[in-house]
Amino acid sequence: MEPCILETRSLSKEFKGFSAVADLNLRVGRGTIHALIGPNGAGKTTVFNLLTKFLTPTSGTIHFKGQDITKEKPADIATLGIIRSFQISAVFPNLSPLENVRIALQRTTGDSYRFWKSERCLRRLDARAMELLDAVGLADLSGGVTGELAYGRKRALEIATTLALEPELMLLDEPTQGMGAEDVERITALVKAASANRTVLMVEHNLKVVASLADRITVLQRGAILAEGPYAEVSQDPRVLEAYMGSAHA
């Protein structure tokens, strides 16, 4: 396995006695697309929120490139190079697509606290923002109203915004959820393209997407790892078939 970029050690999360994640040891290899799957209530989203610091673990630690990030805040892990997406598309609806991407580009400029400067100074970022929009097929919609974009396009915009920060690790929470077949294909291709030179960890329900994208799959059940390995291997595992895939293939 490739050197590990993200690792959890005995990660646990309890909600009032209910153990949502129990003693999880997850290792994500650098440069891979790693998928986290499992039936409803398996703790996928909880794991996701623990990794992105939106939840605090009850016990255990999280390591990014060997560094303990268990105590970091959500904004801090972003500066380390971990950017997450959300289940529901996370765009800024009343800003234009160009401004959406520019918000991400702006973060590293050091201008963000300057309330006395004109926003005209942000125009120097426009060219790069257009490149990113172009890469996801949104260049001709750059000046429109983001809130009025179709769902699939919002998701594409979200990916462009995430890529603007050049993250080393992208965490995607169900990137194709709620999409028609056409959009699923488009987003799958975008994720594939985005994964060049970086690591992707995704929670995903759509097994077709998982099969075509993921190098490695971890199946969760009741907050613990049930099986792990490449799709071909995991999909033949009788425990997995029983817990999850059996119904999906039926």
């Binding site: 992105t52 972003a78 500066t79 959300f86 996370a90 765009v91 918000i103 973060r107």
Partner: peptide, 13 residues
């Protein structure tokens, strides 16, 4: 517009 997203982009909201 979206506080959680601003946070996850690395802004100390």
């Amino acid at each position: 517009e979206n506080e959680a997203r601003a946070l996850s982009l690395g802004y100390r909201v």
